[in-house]
Simulated assay, not measured.
Amino acid sequence: MNPRRKKRLLAVIAIIFGVGSAIGLMLYALQENINLFYTPTELIDGKGENKEKPFIGQKLRIGGMVVPGSVVRDESSLDVSFKLMDTGPMVTIRYEGILPDLFREGQGIVAQGTLVEPDVIEAFEVLAKHDEEYMPPEVAEALKGIKHEKPKYNLNNEN
């Protein structure tokens, strides 16, 4: 191989390696900012065919219905705690701040936050649906094909 071709080949290899390294570093950096959507059932039982569960400290979004009678407000601060469910287990959401005007028991919501225990999320944002017909696309997809029955829950017995 003549020296000119050798230089070109080395330059092409260096460019490919550099671009590949840059893409790899970007994907690694963005990994922490990806918020995956879960329902309470997926959070507890696992998501997908492999039943993958999120790890403690992971940022995520969760959607479901606020369990009637589960909203607990702290009298001295803006701390609120409530339970969220879909068709299965319940998940506790803790939030510090002012809840949306449309937030109420039995209402569908989406919360963004960090998983602090296997069934507890520390939320930094709570969104309530704006009318009876609206449902976030992820929640609608997760609930497709599920026979809807009135949920059976007991607030005295945690699960």
Rank of each mutant, 00 (worst) to 15 (best):
M1V: 11
P3M: 13
P3V: 14
R4G: 11
R4M: 12
R4N: 06
K6A: 05
K6N: 05
R8E: 13
A11F: 06
V12A: 12
V12D: 07
I13V: 15
A14R: 08
A14N: 03
I15S: 01
I15T: 11
G18N: 01
G18D: 06
G18A: 15
S21L: 03
L25S: 14
L25E: 13
Y28P: 06
A29G: 12
Q31Y: 06
N33S: 08
N33G: 08
F37Q: 03
P40E: 10
E42R: 05
I44P: 09
K47M: 02
G48C: 07
K53Y: 10
F55P: 12
G57I: 02
I62F: 03
I62W: 02
G63V: 01
G63A: 03
G64V: 02
G64Y: 00
V71R: 05
V71E: 06
E75R: 09
E75D: 09
L78K: 09
D79L: 13
D79N: 10
F82Y: 05
K83A: 10
K83C: 13
L84M: 10
M85V: 04
T87P: 06
T87S: 15
T92Y: 06
T92V: 14
Y95G: 02
E96P: 12
G97R: 00
D101E: 08
R104N: 13
Q107S: 03
Q107I: 02
Q107P: 03
Q112N: 15
V116I: 15
E117I: 08
E117G: 02
P118H: 06
P118Q: 07
P118M: 01
V120D: 15
E122K: 12
F124A: 09
F124G: 11
E125N: 14
E125R: 13
K129T: 01
K129I: 04
H130A: 07
E132D: 14
E133D: 09
M135C: 01
P136C: 04
P137M: 09
E138L: 04
E138I: 09
V139P: 02
E141H: 05
E141Y: 07
L143K: 00
K144S: 01
I146S: 00
K147F: 13
P151M: 13
P151C: 02
P151S: 04
Y153A: 15
L155Q: 09
N156I: 13
N156G: 15
N157Q: 09
N159W: 13
